[in-house]
């Protein structure tokens, strides 16, 4: 059973789905920058509004957009509490032992929580509307400028391509090894720290051995067929951009600018 895990990708036909993956990635980065740079509540309001609008356009349900955020509630509470209790400021609500509760701290914590939550929603939107392979291609395009500073982008692309090909094989092998060791009586759980490490050796070592053996075989085959380190030019992938890609980029740039001003 050979398959590629598709992560969170959902097929669809919204504007977001039809946008070029490279542009979508750029938009996401711009948007993320906007979210990180914003430091006022009107700014967060704007960001939340924009996120809501994009979610509606994407035809994804609130469940998909908010996935993962709910599971983080404990972490959010902790961040909120720590900031409220320890933030160093003059205006303090009340003090007790080493705790100094303050309104400033509370808002500081709230900001952190909002940023993380919004970044997660943004990531969900990108990944749910773009197939992993498209996204990988977009990343490759994004890395193109690196070539100018001497990074062998073609080799990097080859390595990424080979890695993607390895994923289904390795995951099958890892599963087979896990089952085999379980049948031999391995227990992958233990209380003591050193035992904990040792208990996964029967799983980890064979998985690495299997992976490195495959890699070794492939490398030998490639060398036999004369694969060499690349120094020449690479052809740049041509992308077909449409009007909606341009509009998307423009809107995200505007959003980023607005966040800096607010």
């Amino acid at each position: 059973m050979s398959f590629l895990p598709t992560g969170s990708y959902r097929e669809g036909d919204s504007v977001l789905h039809r946008m070029d993956a490279f542009c979508k990635l750029l938009c996401t980065i711009l948007f993320l920058a906007g979210v990180i740079l914003s430091d006022s509540f009107p700014g967060y309001g704007l960001a939340a509004g924009c996120l809501l609008a994009v979610t509606l356009v994407s035809h994804l349900g609130p469940g998909t957009a908010l996935r993962g955020v709910k599971r983080m509630w404990l972490f959010f509470c902790l961040i909120l509490l720590m900031n409220t209790a320890f933030f160093e400021t003059e205006q303090i609500w009340w003090e007790w032992w080493i705790f100094r509760f303050s309104a400033d701290g509370f808002f500081q914590g709230l900001q952190v929580v909002l940023r993380v939550a919004m970044a997660m929603v943004l990531g969900n939107l990108l990944m749910s509307t773009t197939s992993p392979l498209e996204l990988a291609g977009a990343m490759e395009s994004l890395l193109y400028p690196l070539k100018l500073i001497g990074v062998p982008v073609r080799d990097v692309a080859m390595i990424l391509g080979v890695a993607i090909q390895f994923i289904p094989t390795f995951s099958e092998e890892a599963e087979a090894i896990r089952k085999a060791q379980t049948a031999r009586g391995a227990r992958f759980e233990s209380r003591k720290l050193s035992e904990k490490a040792k208990s996964v050796v029967p799983l980890v070592v064979p998985v690495f051995l299997a992976a490195f053996r495959r890699a070794d075989e492939l490398a030998m085959a490639m060398e036999a067929r004369g694969y060499r380190r690349t120094k020449g030019k690479i052809s740049k992938r041509r992308r077909h951009l449409s009007r909606r890609d341009g509009i998307g980029l423009l809107l995200c740039s505007l959003f980023g600018a607005a966040e800096i001003m607010l």
């Binding site: 087979a176 090894i177 089952k179 085999a180 049948a183 031999r184 029967p202 070592v205 064979p206 051995l209």
Partner: peptide, 19 residues
């Protein structure tokens, strides 16, 4: 545990479990 003791499996390419 009883099952593990009474039933042994030699999987395909069992040499991959050596560690």
């Amino acid at each position: 545990e009883e099952l593990r003791r009474t039933l042994g499996i030699v999987f395909q390419y069992p040499e991959s479990q050596l560690f």
